[in-house]
Every structure is written in C-alpha cells, then in structure tokens.
C-alpha cells in the first residue's frame, strides 16, 4: 500500500502524540512513498517548518507535537 507524505498526514500524527524525527520518518518509509531518502528528508523538513510544531524533550530526545 502506498503512503502519501503530506502536510495533513504529518499534522495528524503530531496531533495524536509527540514524535521524534525518527518516529516521523518511520511513518513514511521510502518503499511506501516512492520517494528517495533525500526527497523524504527534504519534504519532511519543509512540512515541519510550515507546521512549526511545539517541541519538548522527553527522555533526552526532542519531540514535536501539535496542540489542536
């Protein structure tokens, strides 16, 4: 099944619970999005800059989340 790396998809994940960059990347594996790793990183970076999520450190790691 194909997964779309979209702003809406990222927003939904971050509204549900705080996630690290690695958690987010796991939601959009290259084999499911048909994007290269570089394209995935660039797209996620642009989306996160636009969403400007809240940040908090949990267990020593930076997590992003969105308040609805």
């Amino acid at each position: 099944r194909e997964v779309q790396l979209t702003e809406d998809a990222v927003r939904r994940y971050l509204a549900r619970k705080p996630m690290t960059t690695k958690d987010l990347l796991k939601k959009f594996p290259a084999r499911r999005t048909a994007l290269s790793s570089e394209q995935t990183v660039n797209a996620l970076a642009q989306i996160l800059k636009r969403l400007n999520p809240e940040r908090k450190v949990i267990g020593d790691k930076m997590h992003f989340f969105l308040k609805e």
Binding site: T20, K22, L25, S37, V41, N42, L44, A45, K49, M62
Partner: peptide, 20 residues
Amino acid sequence: SSSEADEMAAALEAELNDFM
C-alpha cells in the same frame, strides 16, 4: 536498516537546525 534511519533522522535534524 536502522543505520539508514539514523542517517535520515540526522539529516532531517540538520535541515531543521536553524529553525529549531
């Protein structure tokens, strides 16, 4: 692989560095 995931996470964090 997990090392590729680590590399991608590091690249993403680097992209976001100014912003974070």
